[in-house]
Amino acid sequence: MTTPLLEELAPAGPRRPRPIARRSAALGLLALAVFALVGPLVLADPAAQDLGRYLESPSLAEPLGRDDYGRSVLARLAHATRLSLVLAALCVATALVLGTAAGIASAWLGGWVDAALRAVSEAFVAIPALLVVLLVSALASGGSLWALYLGLALAQWVEYFRVVRARASLVLGSPAVEAAGLLRLGPVHIIRQHLWPDLRPLLTTLASLGMVTSILAMSTLGFVKVGLQPPRAELGLMITDAFPFYDVAPWMVIAPIGVLFLLTVCFLGLRTSKDA
């Protein structure tokens, strides 16, 4: 952009990826994943009610206490975390595969394929993810995991499509690919040495942001009561349900908020580039 007065002294920006931050984010995620995957196997039944132990305070046996139905908050939290992580990963994987394939096809083939895909994406782009999920969950009978999955994946593929299409057109139009064409190196070389190495860091960033978006969207939907339905343990639902008790039993509301916050911060810390 600016004329380099000192090409050899390009100043290091203040936003270099910090390896320590990335490593701790990865560690934090690993801990959360272990909690989500192992927790439900070893902890008590999250649905088991015991009204006699209404709002019991945290103790050694029950580190996060019990909720207004006497259910174990820790066990419910483990189930909710597993649900969030697994569903979000499924949504992100679906959207990523769909969007990346469509984006590369659009950039590579051009012509009517590009025109058609772009027209569809233009319509999707103006519809917020939340709206798509709302409409899809209205389609299902309510509280269905399928609706949530479909809605979130459908709402997110556009992001991958647009980013991948833009970057892939840039790469495919670059002198490097032109040179590869003159050298008759074929499409495999272009995908393996040009496209994939260039897209990979972008996709990593988009995928970690997508996890955040999915997890937050799920909890938001639970919160506005059109997502998953009680008694299923879900982070947003847990926050809503616990909210009326925030001054008598603060652990109930702090626990899911803490997990939600940790999940977002860790995924945000995992990004490779500095995109928002």
């Binding site: 955040v212 947003g236 908020i257 939600l260 916050f261 977002t264 945000l268 928002a276």
Partner: peptide, 8 residues
């Protein structure tokens, strides 16, 4: 701000 959803 990015890590806290609007509802929270």
């Amino acid at each position: 701000v990015r890590a806290v959803p609007p509802f929270l």
